[in-house]
Design a protein around this nucleic acid. Structure first.
Lengths: 225, 225
DNA sequence: CGGACATGTGGATAGCGACCACATTCGGTA
DNA sequence: TACCGAATGTGGTCGCTATCCACATGTCCG
């Protein structure tokens, strides 16, 4: 599922292939599988251990608490999402088309892995530490979107103000809010409730968002500090 | 905290003040309190019972499963959110100003009650039944936003296409996605990570959203207060 | 080759959700 | 008014879980 989700930030040097194989990765993998299968991520730590073929206590040699395993799994989820997003827009030059494509890819990921996506954004608050694995993996995805916006702003397709860093930051956050919110609503089934297909709604949302980002005379619109 | 969060949809006639007092409401109230205090809503059913001053088993007389109590608490949360939103825009005539005000009120609610807000959108997927208490309470909030958009569309402040029902539905969903996503990001602490205040970002987001909703050249100035 | 250390196992504890049998209280009715 | 059935609350119990502890085993380095 995930090609290389392991982070090399802990640097235990040669401790990766130690005794039994590297259990840490196997545990994260098992957690990802469980999150991908069920529609909720309330699986037990013991179940993860069972799936990895170890005793119920082995995980504690790699994660001090269950939360830390969830944290690692969430980080792996962010890595996977990032790889899907960048792959989706790799060959697209037009910023507007790339933006739309990335938006669809984002929502698609969320609806394909609802529990995983929910997990990715549920672990964070319990550890507001900004050096947390999840937060790092999360933030690492931002440049993918930023690049598209910056390119579009340079050729005048988006608001030229976006070439300024603070404006770009805010716009990125705005765009993220749109797709994130849409994804959550899609997962929660509001779309079904409305009898509208997710694709149609996503299309509309992308169009409206693009109209919001394209500021031709918006340059005169004082941008309120 | 909540003035009248009890729903009268079950209609057990005179069973509200039965034996010991009406425990059902007390339990929901206790759950709301716990969700408002902690930053996570993973409190135990026994803890709710303890806070309500009853045995660990009494709740099962009112809710078949713990999930059902969470469901009721989430519905109460939606009721509270709706009342705050409508109260915030009660005296505002200008659609654009009302839209901005409601957006701020929405994000404010989410950041003030992070665990409750998360609970409100976490219970749904486990019960996709559209007659569920949460879903009903959720959907009941939509007209508040729809009214603003419709009014704005009628006077040409927003895209006139929004007077059509399907377009209005989609636009409502879009707007909801924006504020919902922004709220989730604010809760998850991305705003802190960016060193940008939530208010400033919300301001920008509202401005950009309004520009996206505006029809032709209606994007003159963002009257975001 | 031997010990320190990393890694994995089994056992134990406290708390939880959910079920059971039983006690208590209310509301209607004979 | 007294009684009966249903609604409501209590204590007990079971299987499961997260976490801690003591112990076993494998690995690497001197």
């Amino acid at each position: 599922m995930t090609p290389d989700t392991h982070n090399s930030r802990r640097a235990p040097s040669a401790s990766d292939t130690y005794h039994h194989g590297d259990l840490r990765r196997a545990l994260v993998q098992a957690a990802l599988e469980l999150a991908a299968e069920d529609k909720d991520w309330d699986f037990s730590l013991r179940e993860v251990a069972r799936r990895a073929g170890v005793s119920h206590n082995a995980p504690y040699n790699h994660f001090p608490h269950k939360r830390d395993l969830l944290d690692a799994a969430a980080a792996a989820g962010h890595d996977l999402l990032r790889s899907e997003l960048t792959a989706a827009v790799a060959k697209i030059a037009d910023p507007r088309a790339a933006f739309a494509k990335m938006g669809f890819a984002y929502v698609s990921f969320g609806t394909r892995y609802p529990a995983l996506y929910r997990l990715m954004f549920s672990v964070t608050p319990s550890r507001p530490d900004r050096s947390s694995e999840v937060v790092l993996a999360w933030v690492a995805t931002r440049p993918a979107l930023e690049n598209i916006l910056r390119r579009g702003a340079r050729i005048g397709m988006f608001d030229p103000a976006l070439t300024r860093k603070s404006e770009l930051q805010t716009a990125t956050l705005y765009t993220w809010a749109v797709v994130h919110g849409l994804t959550m609503l899609a997962i929660d089934g509001l779309a079904n409730l409305e009898r509208l297909s997710v694709e149609r709604i996503a299309q509309k949302v992308v169009t409206t968002t693009l109209r919001g980002l394209a500021g031709r005379e918006a340059a005169t619109n004082g941008s309120t500090t």
